[in-house]
Amino acid sequence: MDFQIALILAQDGITNGAIYALLALALVLVFAVTRVIFIPQGEFVAYGALTLAMIENGVFPATAWLLLGAGVIVTALDAGAVVRAGGRRVMMLAGTHLLYPALLIGLLWSMPLKDLPLIGQVLVTLLVVVPMGPMMYRIVYQPIAEAPVLVLLIVSVAAHLALVGLGLVFFGAEGYRTSPFSQARFEIGPMFITGQTIWVVLSSLVLIVALAMFFGRTIYGKALRATAINRNGARLMGISPALAGKLTFFLAALIGVLSGVLISPITTIYYDSGFLIGLKGFVGAIIGGLASYPIAAAGALMVGLLEAFSSFWASAYKEVIVFTLVIPVLLWRSLTTHHMEEEE
């Protein structure tokens, strides 16, 4: 391998690593606030990428129907809860979760999706897919929010499976690659840097800074942090765990969809590609012990680089190498952890 190839591989690694880092942050966030190990994170990546691909191809994004379906279920659940509590505001409830998808579907029908500028298409993708995050929390996790981590994990896997299957229904078995955000190529010394790489890295940085601002400066961000540190304490201070959960899932879905939009010009995405991408974010998150944001991000970057270099040296064993990385990490964590904790 010469220096030039190394530079190219490093560039690849950093590009993918930046996306894994975003996913790792979302996973750490979701785990900290809700104790959910968010396996379906990857599905939001795939849904984001493929919804954008459908829009680009001028096809009506089928995920909008899923949004409507989820809205119906959420409304039914909420209405059930309200009626059981003796309330009468069923109509109001129906408004938010049914009206939004219905309006959105109407809007999408009437718009020439194919002719929208890229930024518009991305925006539509976000509008369609991101609300599924909080809805998913409402349907899948909220009823068992107090369950042990293990149960939440199994539910996560179940939700992941259902979403992969639905992805096959909506997007078909074919893979797509969307057009890049920028065709530019810059020559710096001996290497070329593509515009897409710059887009990915910059967007990731902007997103990370925005998240940091959100958690540091806003009341909702602080509420989430409080919930992450002490769920019961936060609850006693009036922070609703359901709201915290939905907000967290909104952020996780947002990060997932943006990652999907960013990665789809680089890699062909299939309905089931999200899982492996999400898991690589996971390896990063595990390196950070599912607790530290900076270490998780650094770990994810390392995963990206490792993946890029191993694809050059031993491409057949690429995935094996990446996932076996977990083992030394676990060893290190296991040697540095001494306390015994009671599982809830």
Binding site: I286, F323, V326, L330, R333, S334, E341
Partner: peptide, 24 residues
Amino acid sequence: LTLKLSGHYLPLGTIAWGISLYFL
């Protein structure tokens, strides 16, 4: 490697393990 850690590391470790072995 995993049993000394909190309960969720075993499933995560086995996911990674399962994938590695499958590719092998």
